[in-house]
Design a binder for these strands. Structure first.
Lengths: 215, 215
DNA sequence: CCAATCAACTTACCGATGTCAAGTTAGTAA
DNA sequence: TTACTAACTTGACATCGGTAAGTTGATTGG
């Protein structure tokens, strides 16, 4: 939507929807989820209270869009990390570190992604792109299974992986780990944990091979 | 509630502090964190807007007390579960299931426990009792280490355990796992994951034994 | 028995928020 | 030019967290 190239502020913003998403993300990055209000975002853009309601049904709709944008970044960076590695095992590790980097570098944005109480009930876009993110992990585990010749349901292994990485991310971003352990740098600890996690996945999948001796 | 035996509502409530905590928990159980407001809690108890401020500095102080109460329940049930098992390995599994039961049976209360943005900055009571909860896990891992004769830093193993269980709890209570997998009953899946996690802990600790062959 | 004290509670208010109804503006298509 | 419509504004409502100042009533010292 153009609305003319004049320098004076036009009646129609021209790109309010994206501006609202960007504005909300900016507040989230610089401050907090609690600091986000529709009125403040609108004010910063130079538009009145009610203007956002012509682009988002309510606050949760805007935050759903913010969450979706976060998943989009996660998928983008995750895909790049996966493609940079050859073996599925290395890909799993790379995806884990990328996931944690995204989460810990943008803690508030990460929280919006997983606080379902902030989301609209049935936001197709969000469900789709979060599904894509989950799909990256599913894909790696599946390639690993093929490589090893494992048979059976890999869902529990997949979910345990997601759980551990997500748990570490949330505990760290909430400050719980730093407070309890005094550790300041998350990266070495994360590497250690991802190594253990990778071993777990490998062993579980190996145990699922027909010739492994286990049932 | 003491404050004289007359049936008429007395000016002094007599036990407002605990009534506020119980009222907030009730709203959290029946509805949502977002449904909790100081005014609504006060209203249900039959007291005015400003009354809670004589017992709690602000809303976060009340929610910190609510969170602490949650950790107290967790420690109580966790301790009972641990004492019901003989081997550290079984204790680890029992503590995991108890943790997940508490979290999933009271999802909103569990969120309050780990949403540090809802807590007061330096709530000694909360830090103390949440430390006790972490201590249960630390204790089990330590007994396991002694039993196996492992040497070295067990913190990474401990944190990976906490991460996985906490991650599963948060993903489940946010509805992410149910939505992504279609699984309705968390318990069998949790048992499977806790078994894998127990194996991970055992193997890592065994690898830390002086005679294990690994460095 | 009385007066002083003090914590517990109330009243009245402030600014901010999410949301809505109704009106206004400005592009666009006939 | 006219009609239509999406985008935006105005103004309002109920509710919220929080504060200042006043009121109540139990306790205590004399």
């Amino acid at each position: 939507m153009a609305s003319g190239g004049s320098a004076r502020k036009p009646y129609h913003h021209g790109n309010l929807r994206e501006a609202l998403i960007d504005g909300a993300i900016a507040i989230i990055q610089e401050q907090d989820i609690a600091a986000v209000s529709l009125r403040k975002v609108a004010r910063q853009i130079g538009v009145t209270n009610a203007a956002p309601y012509h682009h988002f049904a309510n606050k949760t709709a805007l935050l759903s869009a913010v969450a979706a944008e976060g998943f989009r970044v996660l998928v983008e960076r995750g895909t790049a990390a996966i493609e940079a590695e050859a073996s599925p095992r290395a890909q799993l590790n790379a995806l884990g570190m990328t996931y944690l980097s995204v989460a810990i570098e943008h803690p508030a944005h990460y929280q919006v992604m997983f606080r379902s109480d902030l989301h609209q009930a049935d936001c197709e876009d969000l469900e789709c792109v979060s599904g894509d993110a989950f799909g990256m992990l599913v894909g790696i585990i599946d390639r690993l299974r093929e490589e090893l010749g494992a048979e059976g349901d890999v869902l529990p292994v997949t979910l345990s992986t997601w759980s551990m990485v997500h748990g570490f991310a949330t505990l760290w971003t909430q400050g719980a780990l730093e407070k309890k352990t005094g550790i300041e740098d998350w990266s070495p600890l994360a590497q250690h944990i991802l190594r253990m996690l990778g071993d777990l996945v490998m062993r579980e999948l190996e145990a699922m091979c027909p010739d492994s001796g286990h049932e």
